[in-house]
């Protein structure tokens, strides 16, 4: 009986994302709202990317008007602390699989913001792939969000002050 009640957890999510037939599908994308002064001009895009092709696809970067630099990042343990850093060679999405970009995990990092990104504002982001066509998603909404415990780590400097 208990097993059956668990079925309610499996109600399929609404597909609200943008599709590229036979390519990569993005769903439930959002970006963390950010003020340039407070965050050092950084934020990140989160959501689900599904690889509908027959071969592995690699998310190698992206492009958006609001940021000067877009990088694919991972969270990893560095010196006993969770830090984020650029993923060498990009993020692989195996054929037919999905990856989740989420606070505290992999994400598309936006740096050198050109403007404040206010809660409820919408941006357009292009995801660059190796092995599939790039996709551009409009209407990615900025959400006020905490969490993920994200400190930035790079070879040159600590940006989390």
């Amino acid at each position: 009986m208990r097993k059956i009640s668990l079925l309610f957890l499996l109600i399929p999510l609404l597909v609200t994302g943008c599709t590229s037939p036979g390519g990569v599908v993005a769903e439930d994308l959002w970006v963390k709202s950010s003020e340039m002064s407070m965050q050092g001009g950084m934020t990140a895009v989160y959501g689900t990317l599904t690889n509908n092709t027959q071969q592995d696809v690699v998310l190698v970067g992206g492009d958006t008007e609001i940021a000067g630099v877009v990088e694919v990042h991972e969270m990893t343990m560095i010196g006993g602390e969770m830090k984020m850093q650029e993923i060498d060679g990009g993020l692989t999405i195996p054929a037919g699989m999905s990856i989740v970009l989420e606070p505290g995990g992999n994400h598309l990092m936006l740096m050198m913001l050109t403007d404040d990104l206010e809660a409820g504002e919408e941006i357009s982001v292009t995801f660059d792939f190796d092995g599939a066509e790039d996709i551009t998603v409009d209407g990615i909404v900025a959400k006020p969000a905490e969490g993920g415990d994200e400190d930035y780590h790079s070879g040159e400097m600590e940006m989390d002050n």
């Binding site: 309610f8 999510l13 959002w30 963390k32 989160y46 606070p103 409820g120 909404v141 959400k143």
Partner: peptide
């Protein structure tokens, strides 16, 4: 309007029994 954009999406998802974005 930005506030209403967030609430509209949130309420639609919650009404369907889904989590909100973020």
């Amino acid at each position: 309007l930005r506030w209403m954009r967030l609430l509209t999406d949130d309420i639609a998802r919650l009404t369907a029994g889904e989590p909100v974005l973020a």
